[in-house]
């Protein structure tokens, strides 16, 4: 029972990270039909940028700011402006393939430009554990969960309660009509890319102290984010959120109770079952096929 509780908390913490990445993934898909195969690398990179800035002799606080700003500029604004925008007219697949090339590029650049070895990343939360119902639960896990949930709730509040947020929703649901109604569609799309970068940034700073900063971290996180987004429902933020937690829990429970060697395979099986049985995702809307 103790172990089970620990696994649940750890699962919710990893799930919150997956949810952050999956929500960004979903947002970008909704507003601009971009399938970002580099999403995992987006979560890997900010920590590497911060460490690079720190290696150049900047104090840690400044390094955080420099790394964050550089990342949002490059992979929020730059990604939208210089990759997605020119590629969009070619359709979904060429753009997805371009993001695949981008993922290889980021990964190799991080490996050669920074380090091939895992590097420690400073944690904002002290190590240790507290006793909850007799089980020792890691403070870090709780902190990850709380911060991620706060970010997601903040985003949700922004989207549903502010004018800008609602215009963004309109853009996602029907860009043509939104444009007719005077919504600055391009600016709204850019905003979703900036939000995506910001979410990736938060996820990166939360997870890197646990898993260390390494160029290959993006593979696992990216995969989990795709699975979470699809299982939950490709076109729903709450779907991505639910999917993230579900995959985080499955991941941790499978590692303990099924087989640690095949822990990656279990969420994949869930993915395949969901795609085959309910392709629109557990909470998703159906998208009609056009002739």
């Amino acid at each position: 029972m103790d172990q089970f509780l620990q696994l649940i908390v750890a699962g919710l913490a990893t799930g919150a990270i997956y949810a952050l990445a999956a929500i960004g993934f979903t947002l970008v898909w909704q507003t601009s039909q971009t399938i970002n195969f580099a999403q995992g690398e987006f979560v890997m990179l900010p920590a590497i940028l911060v460490l690079t800035a720190a290696h150049l002799g900047l104090p840690m606080g400044v390094a955080f700011i420099v790394g964050s700003v550089a990342f949002v500029l490059l992979f929020g604004f730059g990604f939208k402006r210089f990759l997605v925008e020119p590629m969009q007219r070619h359709g979904v697949l060429p753009l997805a393939i371009a993001t695949m090339a981008l993922s290889v590029l980021i990964k190799e650049a991080a490996k050669n430009g920074f380090s091939a070895e895992a590097q420690p990343f400073p944690s904002l939360v002290p190590d240790g554990s507290v006793s909850v119902l007799g089980a020792a639960v890691s403070v870090r896990d709780i902190a990850i969960f709380v911060v991620a949930i706060a970010a997601i709730l903040g985003l949700q509040a922004f989207i549903t309660h502010t004018r800008t947020g609602r215009t963004m929703q309109a853009t996602a649901q029907n860009p043509t009509v939104a444009r007719i109604l005077g919504v600055p569609v391009e600016r709204m799309i850019l905003l979703t890319f900036l939000i995506n970068a910001a979410l990736a940034l938060i996820a990166s700073y939360l997870i890197s102290p646990v898993y260390l900063a390494k160029f290959s971290n993006g593979e696992t996180i990216g995969l989990a984010a795709f699975i979470a987004a699809i299982v939950g429902g490709f076109n729903q933020i709450r779907g991505a959120l639910a999917g993230g937690f579900l995959i985080g829990l499955i991941d941790n429970l499978a590692a303990a109770y099924v087989s640690s060697a095949y822990r990656t395979a279990v969420p994949l099986v869930v993915l395949v079952v969901v795609i085959l049985v309910k392709p629109e995702g557990l909470l998703g809307r159906k998208e009609e096929r056009t002739v």
Binding site: I227, I230, Y262, V272, I275
Partner: peptide
């Protein structure tokens, strides 16, 4: 068979899952 039900990016994800499973089998 999955390709009979889903297309495009969904199919890409199903085949991606298959790739990862094959890799895990080879490794484990």
């Amino acid at each position: 068979f999955p390709a009979l039900r889903v297309k495009h990016h969904y199919l890409a994800f199903v085949t991606l899952a298959f790739s990862v499973v094959v890799f895990l089998v080879a490794r484990n």
